[in-house]
Amino acid sequence: MAENKTRPTEASVEHYLEAIADEDRRQDCETLAGLMARATGQPARMWGTAIVGFGSHHYRYESGREGDMCLVGFSSRKGDISVYGLNAAPSHETLMPKLGRHKAGKGCLYLRNLREIDLEVLEQLVAEAAQAKARGHC
């Protein structure tokens, strides 16, 4: 079975954030890093070359595929900031309509910027998702 290519690295989160050319996007990502660190109680760590992740958990799918991944994380992509892992939050269904302007994919949340987001709702989603995954409830 193929190994997961996204693994924790020793790369610098600060360097990753500093390399984001757009100042507004860089500030949003710095804010998001602080929010996720606070909500998870975990330090930021690079996963692969482009994901800022917090904590880790072991997952196993029904297909048999398994591996380790950050509890929650984000990446500055070309169009949006991709946020990973929030679907595990027990209050996901009730909190998402309160979040603000976003797009949602199967496993990701896409944010254009944080000005359009209720950061308290986002922090609650992050905290709940991280706790659920840490307890193995997802």
Rank of each mutant, 00 (worst) to 15 (best):
residue 1 M to V: 06
residue 5 K to I: 11
residue 7 R to F: 05
residue 8 P to F: 07
residue 9 T to A: 09
residue 10 E to D: 15
residue 12 S to C: 05
residue 12 S to A: 11
residue 12 S to V: 06
residue 13 V to A: 01
residue 14 E to V: 11
residue 17 L to C: 09
residue 17 L to F: 08
residue 17 L to I: 10
residue 20 I to V: 15
residue 21 A to V: 15
residue 21 A to E: 15
residue 22 D to S: 12
residue 22 D to T: 10
residue 23 E to F: 01
residue 24 D to P: 14
residue 25 R to C: 13
residue 26 R to N: 04
residue 31 T to Q: 13
residue 32 L to A: 07
residue 35 L to H: 05
residue 36 M to K: 08
residue 38 R to L: 10
residue 42 Q to I: 00
residue 46 M to S: 08
residue 48 G to V: 08
residue 48 G to N: 12
residue 49 T to E: 14
residue 50 A to D: 08
residue 52 V to W: 06
residue 53 G to D: 06
residue 53 G to S: 02
residue 54 F to R: 01
residue 55 G to D: 03
residue 58 H to N: 12
residue 58 H to S: 13
residue 59 Y to M: 04
residue 64 G to R: 08
residue 70 C to S: 15
residue 71 L to H: 00
residue 71 L to W: 11
residue 73 G to Y: 08
residue 74 F to T: 07
residue 83 V to K: 13
residue 83 V to H: 05
residue 85 G to R: 05
residue 86 L to A: 10
residue 87 N to I: 15
residue 94 T to W: 00
residue 99 L to D: 02
residue 99 L to M: 07
residue 101 R to E: 13
residue 104 A to K: 11
residue 105 G to T: 10
residue 107 G to I: 12
residue 109 L to N: 11
residue 110 Y to A: 06
residue 111 L to M: 07
residue 114 L to R: 07
residue 116 E to L: 14
residue 117 I to V: 14
residue 118 D to W: 04
residue 119 L to S: 03
residue 119 L to A: 01
residue 122 L to S: 10
residue 125 L to P: 07
residue 127 A to P: 04
residue 130 A to M: 06
residue 131 Q to A: 15
residue 133 K to D: 01
residue 133 K to Q: 05
residue 133 K to S: 11
residue 134 A to M: 04
residue 134 A to V: 01
residue 135 R to M: 08
residue 136 G to E: 00
